[in-house]
Amino acid sequence: MLAEFLQYLFTGITIGATYALIALGFTLIYNASHVINFAQGEFLMIGGMATVSLTAMGVPMIVAVVLAVILAGILGIALQRFAIAPAKQADVVTLIIITIGASIFIRGIAQVVWGKEYHVMQNFSTDQPIQVFGAVLNSQSLWVLGIGAILVVGLVLFFTKTLIGKAILATSMNKEAARLVGIRTQMVLMLAFMVSALLGSVAGIVVAPITFTSYDIGIILGLKGFVAAAIGGLGSGVGAVVGGLSLGIVEAMAAGYISSDYKDAVAFSMILLVLFFMPRGLFGAKVVERV
């Protein structure tokens, strides 16, 4: 009984941690520009696929991971520079549509470069699962949770302790005012895209040994990450983490105790319920209309 519950919990937390990392990426860019970046899932895919193909070429794992993350970072900057920046006068909806276009473009390129097959990545450490009270835990899950936690702490420090982090926060609060005090807002936007691409690619890499990776893995994971961000309240870092974890756990519990047929239905009912009673999400900012 306990073993069963623990098993579902482990499954949920692992996948939930991934959702949380993706949701954080959404949150970052949303904060900086109010754009929902639907190419977020593609960063995840780039991370996983680049690592797999580099290791296949004989590059050591660690180097491959670093290179893949750098590649994703460059892609994030390129996305902002070449797709978002040229349309700076456009309204938010247009920008969101641009990100959808960009995601299709990136996916297309990936399909041509890496093919359409699924690829495997080896576990970072042992393949041997860990037994906990009768439930089994994939050792890779610990990596996902550990790296997820480090990233979250790192992000918090980045935003509260560094000047650049504060500049991003300032831009998100009031772009005009930020510009007036000398913050280069275009630069900040680019940074936000880069950091969120880094986050996404790391998530893609740590989760790839569990989920496999392919050129289209970003679609569904990106969407789930967006759901997590919306549940938590778009724009809230805590919300993204809580939203991601709770989405993952609810999904796993639904699959285990009710039926896997209703798994997605339960997850999406959850977002309906949350948004119905708390329209700005669990941790969404209180908005005061100023007249």
């Binding site: 098993q7 579902y8 482990f10 499954t11 692992t14 996948i15 089994v136 989760v207 569990i210 989920t211 569904i220 994971l221 796993a252 519990m253 699959a255 285990g256 039926s259 896997s260 047929d261 798994k263 997605d264």
Partner: peptide, 12 residues
């Protein structure tokens, strides 16, 4: 059952 996009079937 599981859906095509599921990434973990441990629960099932």
């Amino acid at each position: 059952t599981y859906s095509g996009s599921d990434t973990d079937m441990t629960a099932q």
